[in-house]
């Protein structure tokens, strides 16, 4: 076990472009590597733009390990798992952190079984235990009712996934330098029994919900699907994306890609404005890193008010139309004076 050393983050690329989650992971990884006094490596699979690889170093990686076989351009479980298992065997990192993304949450459990390693999903906190140097992994469980801290004392590497948007991306330091290690992967490892036949983009709004600066969300209080029109209108005015509580999605009022919360997407926008959302623990766990939370709900006891910076206890069918009118008036006035 003592042969395992160093911290890895699993960076992600889409069409050769390094994804933001990679920089968030560098924030986490840098802190752990500094505490342990070991190097931090970013591992990236698939052909990636050189600028992106440099950016990984500028944002905190001491080295970048890249396996740029074209077979790894898109995430496929088997080639990714075999390649990572090969790299783990070769380099023996003590810690691997990946994003809790559709690919990270698939690859990491496959890899954990293959490497006989402990894996903790959806961590919100990562730390190093003082005496042992073990990775302490804190995560919400039981629908966010509890936070459990977990470690894997007798297995290496120690593996964890981290929710996107639960950390800020590491800032770039143009003066940083590091090594680039290109790995050649045996073609046998790149075979796949899963073939990617095509891709259908989601409607842009649902796709952007995790990236959006503003998210306007509706819940059961909307009473019927058509009333999402109010949410859509307000989101359009504020240049935001549309979110929904699990209740609203379960009722079929809006698609699952819009669902916010532990069983949907975690968001961390500048503004999260929701109406008719009571604020289940699961929902709150998905929005708590938002900078500003504004809630409209008819029930003064609704849990959402416990996390709101500003709240209105009232009828959303009165509040939202008035709010929309007033924002329009304000925007018109601003436009007139420019």
């Amino acid at each position: 076990m003592q042969d395992y050393s160093g911290v890895w983050i699993l960076a992600e690329q889409r069409h050769g472009t390094v994804q933001t989650i990679s920089y968030e992971l560098l924030t986490r990884g840098r802190a752990l590597a500094d505490t342990l006094g070991v190097p931090l490596a970013a591992v990236i699979l698939g052909p990636t733009d050189d600028a992106g690889l440099d950016e990984l170093i500028r944002r905190g990686a001491d080295r970048v390990i890249i396996a740029d076989a074209p077979e790894l351009a898109e995430f496929l479980p088997e080639p990714y798992t075999r390649t990572m298992a090969h790299l783990v065997k070769t380099h023996q990192p003590e810690i691997i952190i990946a994003g809790a993304t559709s690919s990270g949450r698939t690859l990491m459990p496959l890899l954990a079984i293959t490497c006989h390693a402990g894996l903790t999903a959806d961590c919100t906190g990562l730390d190093i235990e003082d005496e042992t140097g073990n990775l302490l992994q804190t995560r919400p469980a039981i629908g966010g009712n509890i936070m459990a801290t977990i470690k894997s004392p007798a297995h290496r590497p120690q593996m964890a996934t981290v929710r996107p948007k639960s950390t800020r991306p590491a800032p770039a330091d143009p003066a940083r330098t590091g090594a680039l290690i290109r790995e050649t992967i045996d073609p046998e490892l790149l075979k796949s029994r899963v073939k990617r036949l095509g891709f259908t983009p989601a409607d842009a709004d649902a796709a952007n919900i995790q990236e959006a600066e503003v998210v306007v969300a509706g819940g059961r209080g909307l009473k019927k699907g058509d009333n999402f029109g109010l949410i859509n209108a307000l989101a359009a005015l504020l240049g935001g994306a549309v979110g929904a509580s699990r209740d609203a999605v379960d009722r079929g009022w809006i698609g699952y890609p819009h669902q916010v919360g532990l069983s949907g997407k975690t968001v961390s926008p500048k503004l999260y404005l929701c109406a008719g959302v009571s604020g289940s623990i699961q929902h709150l766990a998905g929005i708590k890193t938002s900078e500003n939370i504004i809630a409209v709900n008819s029930n003064p006891e609704a849990q959402i008010f416990q996390v709101a910076n500003y709240g209105i206890v009232g009828d959303l069918f009165e509040v939202l139309p008035l709010l929309i009118d007033k924002i329009k008036a304000k925007q018109a006035a601003t436009a007139a004076t420019v």
């Binding site: 402990g118 509890i146 996390v307 209105i312 206890v313 009232g314």
Partner: peptide, 29 residues
């Protein structure tokens, strides 16, 4: 099982927000 639960906490997420009541038209406005 490679993993061990070290401890369990109950999380608190609270902000001291400004919560208004819109009970009548004036309050709503």
């Amino acid at each position: 099982s490679p993993t061990r639960v070290v401890k369990i906490n109950t999380p608190k997420v609270t902000r001291s927000g400004d919560i208004r009541t819109a009970g009548d038209p004036a309050e709503l406005e």
